[in-house]
Design a protein around this nucleic acid. Structure first.
Length: 228
DNA sequence: ACTTGATCATGG
DNA sequence: CCATGATCAAGT
């Protein structure tokens, strides 16, 4: 039987998406790449988003750069997450860029972070560099929404970070701020600058920042799934 | 060993 | 430049 093929269209509901994701569990990236005519890179140094794009293809997400959820019609965001042999995340997870201007009156309830994380399809993928990319296996998917405690953690961190941004302290924020959500550079390089406000309200140029989920947060949500 | 800050590719 | 997809690798 060879009913294994990419979804040609965006999934119409969660069940269809989850079913397709479950079909991919256990397969290698090399197998998935071969079936869609892609060639796995030797490493990810110059192809950091390759796995994400490959899984998007298989799950019927529209590739490319759109400021929307991957499956906008059913309100789901796709995140591949590299894990070690024990199922623990190897990297933080990018959520979205942080707005450095125009933030007066912005609140958690309508924030991009909350919207992005409202419902996420997590797909763990073996990520240890000792494993050739083509041989890395896809894990079991997890369709997740933050529970009350997780949302409160996220909200607290988001509010702390946004307060600092609004107060013109963006350049004093380090990745150590926040328990589960951190703010770090998100740019092509250290020379790509964007506008923000300084401590005295004056315009400044600074690195674009992104919100990232710390590993303790994603490790916990994956572990909870793994045990059930 | 681990995290933080820096970086890579692509499309619009 | 900004958005998407993230991982790299120097420093602690």
């Amino acid at each position: 039987m060879h009913t294994l093929e990419p979804l040609a269209h965006p999934p119409e509901n969660e069940a269809e998406l989850l079913a397709q994701a479950q079909r991919l569990a256990g397969l290698t990236l090399g197998e998935l790449a071969l079936r869609v005519g892609l060639t796995p890179p030797a490493d990810l140094k110059r192809d950091k988003g390759w796995i994400g794009v490959l899984l998007e293809l298989w799950l019927g997400a529209s590739a490319g750069s759109k400021p929307e959820q991957d499956f906008a019609a059913i309100g789901i965001e796709l995140k591949t997450i590299p894990i070690d042999s024990l199922g623990r995340p190897l990297e933080t997870t990018f959520v979205c860029v942080a707005p450095l201007t125009g933030n007066t009156g912005v609140i958690w309830e309508t924030s991009h972070v909350r919207h992005k994380l409202k419902r996420v399809l997590w797909i763990p993928v073996e990520g240890e560099r000792a494993i050739p990319v083509a041989e890395r296996r896809v894990g079991s998917p997890l369709l997740w929404s933050p529970d009350r405690e997780e949302e409160e953690q996220l909200r607290r961190d988001w509010e702390e970070l946004m307060d600092l941004i609004v107060l013109g302290q963006v350049e004093r924020i380090t990745a150590r701020h926040g328990e589960v959500l951190q703010l770090r550079p998100k740019a092509a390089n250290s020379k790509a600058l964007t506008e923000a406000f300084g401590a005295h309200g004056e315009p400044i140029l600074t690195l674009p920042r992104g919100f990232y989920l710390k590993k303790n947060f994603t490790a916990a949500l994956l572990a909870r799934h793994f045990m059930m």
